[in-house]
């Protein structure tokens, strides 16, 4: 897994992978090389020449295989997260969306309700009606928006001015 992540961090994106694959084909080291291999194998076998030549071919084939395997690994590493994410979205789309909508709306409404209630309470205690309610409602609106953004992971958590946590879901 660490190897996958490293190769991903190296910037071997899908475009890199395609370029590498293309280069390999034009080099003549990949597909054509293998084709040559097969033809050669038939040749020496017919003449009865074994040993060093065959060993050499095997080396080439192993190298080739090794490199192909690495390329495949890299390409899988770049594609796997995407595919998993896509699957999750597709599977949990309706239910998670419903949950998310309820979550965000309850956060927003709670902010406004609490702001208005605090303002109303201050009005009752201090007799400043209707200014407490008005200011409380406006501040509550701000708090509601903040709640929604925070719940969606777009604003930093409480007490931190740093970057927000990674967005939830």
């Amino acid at each position: 897994m660490s190897l996958n992540v490293r190769s991903w961090l190296d910037g071997r994106g899908p475009s890199n992978y395609v370029a590498g694959d293309f280069k390999k084909r034009t080099d003549g080291d990949g597909l054509t090389g293998q084709g040559g291999c097969v033809a050669d194998k038939n040749g020496p076998d017919g003449t009865g020449k074994t040993g060093r030549g065959k060993q050499h071919e095997a080396d080439i084939r192993d190298d080739d295989l090794e490199r192909r395997r690495r390329d495949l690994e890299a390409s899988l590493a770049t594609r796997r997260p995407d595919r998993l994410e896509g699957k999750d979205d597709a599977k949990a789309g309706s239910v998670a969306g419903y949950g998310q909508a309820l979550k965000l709306s309850s956060e927003f409404i709670a902010g406004i309700v609490v702001g208005a209630a605090l303002g109303w309470f201050i009005d009752r205690v201090a007799g400043t009606s209707p200014w407490g309610l008005i200011v409380g409602l406006l501040l509550g609106f701000g708090a509601g928006v903040l709640n929604v953004l925070r719940s969606a992971g777009l604003v930093s958590e409480f007490g931190t001015g740093d970057k927000p946590r990674d967005p939830k879901e």
């Binding site: 956060e107 709670a110 609490v114 702001g115 509550g140 701000g142 708090a143 509601g144 903040l146």
Partner: peptide, 12 residues
Amino acid sequence: IEVISFVSRPVS
């Protein structure tokens, strides 16, 4: 706003 946001947590 942060205080109101905190108080709104149990409500939500």
